[in-house]
Design a protein around this nucleic acid. Sequence first.
DNA 1: TTGACATATCGTGAGATGACGATACTATCG
DNA 2: CGATAGTATCGTCATCTCACGATATGTCAA
Lengths: 112, 112
Amino acid sequence: MPDRTKAKSKPFGDAAAFSEAAECLKMLAHPVRLRIVQLLLQGRYTVGELAEDCGVPDNVASEHLRLMQRCGFFTSEREGRRVYYQVAEPHLENIINCVEDRFLSSLQSKSA
Amino acid sequence: MPDRTKAKSKPFGDAAAFSEAAECLKMLAHPVRLRIVQLLLQGRYTVGELAEDCGVPDNVASEHLRLMQRCGFFTSEREGRRVYYQVAEPHLENIINCVEDRFLSSLQSKSA
DNA sequence: TTGACATATCGTGAGATGACGATACTATCG
DNA sequence: CGATAGTATCGTCATCTCACGATATGTCAA
């Protein structure tokens, strides 16, 4: 029995931290958002470019981007009529790598 | 401009893989489930133990465990009246580590 | 200015999620 | 056997999520 004392080390004391982490994961837990994060980890893209790649209308992509921007995932810069998004949260790369390891590994490798 | 050709490498072709990954992340995207995964990565626990630590009623914990078991996260073994759950999906550890790095690092370190 | 393009925001509605209480099952104890 | 502890399942309901269409904003070109 490996230290089953459970010594009240954490009777879920930091529930707030877990909630914050859960919120973040919820943001990632959508196929289109996942794809958008993956793309933006490789460079800057506009709303329209992301929308086209994901096969969703522009406004849908725009909403996903807004949600993720509110979480601090991305920042945006307007250039003319276009708006470029880019990654602002450095830990996204680690998490996406884990996810790719498990689910998307076969697709990614050939890009190198 | 870093190869912005976007060479139709993936017009979201593998949407199925992204959906599967998103489903998995959705499972993790809940504070109680996150905590349960963290605990089970450190050993076997019963429904009641997990429920108490998380501060939720037994049936709620049981439902979360059932959902995660359906995803292949866990397996369970009955011992007398109790049911012990344990981790079955090895990649959970990596993902949780990433999440801890970002959100829960201050709590975990003292365990070492 | 007018019109077209790119993006953002809003209202709505269908579907999913998650907590709760009640109940049912399983195993042990007396 | 009945009683109880531990777990699982079900129905219900409030809430959230997400896509859609419509509309608004911002930018540039003519």
